[in-house]
């Protein structure tokens, strides 16, 4: 019965999700199309080498990494910032909309007057958010795998799968955080603001902890640091990805418990 909420959630967002997939695939194609010209300019590595350390560490340009290789190029151009950013915007938007947004619009009242437990509603909606994130990551994977032979990225498909897994884990933890915040507080604004601020903070900690020593102890709290910053070159940190997924599950379960305690808000 709560499964209907999963179906409904996916169906309600299917147009937006399709648009996201097309947009991200187009962006990936654009980035890939530029690769041949980067590959043929050996000076590019020198240029990148001369970047300030702050920029290098924010964009995940590892010491000894080669940005003119397919893996290094995509790590810097896609996996260090743009893809996590795009997936997080989708995940947080979806997590905030599916519960807090529905409540703000007054549509939760009728649904929760039906004989289903609120926590099951939260879990079903969480499943819908997860399905959207996985869909986008799969589309990105297919796009990159198809472009690989065309522009000569020369990627290891295993590494690509790891990178996408790490990407999905990041989407999951912030998407479910948005859902859980909406479950705990009846408003859409914190459901977007809290995970967005948490993600921005975690991203900075991950990028800058080596340069700013006082941030270093906090790196364990950053999902970005946990999953690893250059997945195509050095692989994702499998244990880190697992930790992030477990954290995401805990956040979702907390939301499912907190939603039972509070009053449903009238718009």
């Amino acid at each position: 019965m709560a499964a209907e909420l999963l179906r409904r959630g996916l169906s309600d967002h299917r147009r937006a999700l399709a648009a996201w997939c097309v947009g991200i695939a187009a962006y990936v194609a654009l980035v890939a199309a530029i690769f041949p010209s980067i590959e043929s300019s050996p000076d590019f590595n020198k240029l990148v080498e001369s970047y300030p350390d702050v920029l290098k560490s924010l964009f995940g340009i590892a010491a000894g990494g080669d940005v003119t290789s397919g893996a290094g190029y995509l790590d810097v151009e896609l996996f260090s910032l743009m893809l996590p950013l795009l997936v997080l915007v989708l995940a947080i938007g979806s997590g905030a909309r599916t519960l807090a947004g529905e409540e703000d619009a007054g549509r939760l009242e009728l649904v929760l007057s039906y004989p289903l437990r609120r926590r099951d509603a939260v879990l079903a909606k969480g499943a819908a958010v997860a399905a959207e994130i996985v869909t986008v990551c799969v589309v990105v994977g297919i796009a990159i795998a198809l472009l690989d032979p065309l522009v000569g990225l020369d990627l290891a498909l295993g590494r690509l799968a790891e990178a996408l897994g790490a990407l999905a884990a990041l989407g999951l933890v912030y998407g479910w955080l948005a859902l859980a915040v909406g479950a705990a507080w009846p408003s859409r604004a914190p459901a977007i603001g809290v995970p967005a601020a948490a993600a921005a903070g975690a991203y900075l900690v991950s990028g800058l902890h080596e340069l700013a020593g006082w941030l270093d102890p906090f790196r364990f709290l950053s999902p970005f640091w946990l999953v690893g910053s250059s997945p195509l070159q050095s692989g994702a940190d499998a244990r880190g990805v697992l930790v992030v997924v477990v954290a995401a599950v805990i956040v979702l379960l907390a939301g499912a418990l907190l939603v039972e305690r509070r009053d449903l808000e009238t718009p």
């Binding site: 409904r8 007054g106 549509r107 009242e109 009728l110 009238t266 718009p267």
Partner: peptide
């Protein structure tokens, strides 16, 4: 069975 006073549908 419940009909809300301020009915909001999809």
């Amino acid at each position: 069975g419940y009909l809300p006073g301020d009915l909001r549908l999809s």
